[in-house]
């Protein structure tokens, strides 16, 4: 469903070139639960931004459902994000002092979904994300961290995305609530959602069926259900 081919990302500051990604290739199929693991500075965040169509690679190709989006314009990328991608961030990024329902409905505003449909879709997503009806009209700043992250997950579901990108979703949570959030992802994966998890903590990645480890801008390991592809295979 998504495929990256030999993508690189170079940041230029003056004369100094910083190669963050040095030719990464892999593909993710529908229904997969992939964890991208790497220490900070490994380039995993940059990779996630490219996968999430927030950024474009310096070279290489990125096929999203068959379309090469690596040279898309800003507005075209926004369109892909709007229709096909759901984001979950480490810091939740909810609108403060706003009800849970309004937060979850936010992506539908940009997708021009009619008002009557919005509420229905959002309420279902909130339940799907493991919250209850009593949460609908709570203000976002009155929730616990775990609840906030599940609101964010609900928000990522409303546009029925092809892929959910979660960037360190448990980073701001204690291990118990973190575990609960991970269970939510597992449940969603079982329902057929494609999930890409970015983390630097190995035990979080244990929940995923496939683990891609990157270091210094390169993939060093790609394990699916315990079976590792060799580095040579990856390069091909």
């Amino acid at each position: 469903m998504i495929e990256v081919k030999n993508i690189t990302k170079v940041y230029k500051t003056g004369d100094f070139e910083n190669k963050v990604l040095k030719g990464i290739s892999f593909s993710i199929n529908e229904g997969e639960f992939v964890a991208i693991i790497g220490p900070s500075g490994s380039g995993k965040s940059t990779l996630m931004h490219i996968l999430g169509c927030l950024d474009t690679p310096t070279t290489g190709q990125y096929f999203f459902e068959g379309k090469d989006v690596s040279r898309f314009s800003d507005d075209e990328l926004a369109e892909i994000r709007k229709r096909k991608i759901g984001f979950v961030f480490q810091a939740f990024n909810l609108l403060p002092r706003t009800t849970v329902l309004r937060n979850v409905m936010l992506p539908l505003i940009y997708a021009n979904v009619s008002r009557s449909k919005r509420e229905k879709i959002a309420k279902k997503a909130i339940i799907d994300a493991g919250l209850k009806e009593k949460h609908f009209y709570r203000l976002s700043n009155q929730l616990s961290g775990g609840e906030m992250q599940r609101v964010a997950i609900a928000r990522s579901l409303v546009n029925n995305p092809s892929i959910i990108l979660a960037d360190e979703p448990t980073g701001n949570l204690d291990s118990k609530t973190g575990e609960f959030v991970m269970q939510t992802f597992e449940k969603l994966n079982k329902e057929g959602r494609t999930i890409v998890l970015i983390t630097h903590e190995k035990y979080i990645a244990e929940n995923a069926k496939r683990k891609i480890t990157i270091r210094d801008g390169e993939i060093i390991e790609d394990i699916t259900n315990g079976i590792s592809k060799s580095v040579q295979q990856i390069k091909e």
Binding site: G52, L54, D74, D75, A78, E79, R81, K82, R83, F87, F89, A91, N93, L95, L106, P107, Y110, A111, R155, N159
Partner: peptide
């Protein structure tokens, strides 16, 4: 700023 970032991530264009 973060709210703007979020809005952009969920599909808002620059013009929006």
């Amino acid at each position: 700023t973060r709210e703007i970032g979020l809005r952009r991530a969920i599909g808002a264009k620059k013009s929006d």
